[in-house]
Amino acid sequence: MAARMREAPFPTKRSPADWGGCRAVERSMDDDARSRLDRASRRLLFDTRNEVRTAEAQLTRRLGIDRAVRIAVTVGITVLLTGVCGTVLTWESSRFIKGDIICGTVAALCVATIVFITDGALKSRGELKADLEESRESLRRLSAHEHPPLSERRLLYREDTAGIIEQYQADSRKYRRVHNSLQSLIMIGSAATTTIAALETGKELTWQSIALTGISFAITLAAAFTGYYKYRERSYFLQQTADAIEEEANAVALGVGPYSEFGTDQQQEALKLFTQRVEDLRNEQRRRQQQLDQPADQAAPSGQPPAA
């Protein structure tokens, strides 16, 4: 037995025939289990991000549908009440028949609009919010297991800041628009109250008195808007910033001023300095804009424009 074992040693390399005719498949050295798991994890993370975007889009659409339904319901109820009140008040004379027809037509259009926009609509707002929260939670958990390099995390953060800036700017514009609308209503109402009080003096109205009252109303309104919105200051600071940026652009193009030290082979350094100086000018303009939006008793813009 020992002699036979020495004569027939165990084969160190087996041919395809020894494996039952199965040929071994060559695999890349990079195609290991770790790389496959990383690719699968990245793919799952990408799909989850798409699910979050889809859920956000569906929720936005649902909110738009709900807003349109509320507007249609409000308009429909308003015209129905108008039609009912008009009919009751003119029941004997029947002079509101044309108004009833108009109110009924508008109400029917409102009902048709509600049926059209809710036909085959999405899920309810609560269900869509729940789906969105679930998708965001899944994305957060998957992102917690990902460990990209620091450079990639910084790039991702830079891309995320674009959405944050856009959201902040949209909210700022919305609140500024509401505030300016209310402030304009206050100024117009104050000027109109003074004008109406001037007309109710018991004197006979002539074209001279009406013209004088109208001119006074216009002057009061113009003074109020000019004092509140500060159009001259805004124009002055914007033109000043534009002139400064134009000066920087001409200097970097001609290689003069602070850019005279850079040669033809140092264009990147010159552009770096140009970008920094222009960003400083833009930041200064933003600070001036914020100071102009504040009340006069809190802060005054630096570098007031010269008196006209």
Score class of each variant (00 low, 15 high):
A296F: 03
G83E: 01
Q276G: 09
R277Y: 02
R43P: 01
L128D: 03
E134Y: 06
F116W: 13
V88Y: 08
A242M: 10
E200T: 13
S41H: 00
R27S: 01
P295R: 10
I186K: 15
L221N: 00
Y175F: 14
F217I: 03
A33C: 01
E204D: 12
E92K: 12
D243R: 06
D171P: 12
I186E: 14
G99A: 14
P295L: 05
T264D: 12
K230Y: 00
A107V: 09
D18I: 11
E284K: 05
G257I: 06
R14N: 11
S93G: 06
I164P: 01
Q240D: 05
S35A: 02
Y236F: 05
F237V: 02
W207I: 12
N250I: 07
E51P: 01
V88A: 15
G303Y: 03
I77G: 15
D32N: 03
G163E: 04
A299G: 02
Q58N: 07
Q290R: 12
Y259H: 07
A40R: 05
A24D: 09
T201R: 12
A2L: 06
M1C: 13
S151M: 15
S235T: 09
C103Q: 02
G86M: 03
E247T: 08
E26G: 04
E7N: 15
G214R: 05
V84H: 11
Q266P: 09
K123F: 05
A296I: 09
E261F: 06
C22W: 11
L142V: 00
V84N: 13
S28T: 06
T201M: 04
D280R: 10
D30L: 05
F46R: 07
S94Y: 09
R62P: 03
I245L: 11
A2I: 10
V69N: 05
P306E: 03
A308T: 10
K272S: 14
R287T: 08
R67I: 03
K230V: 00
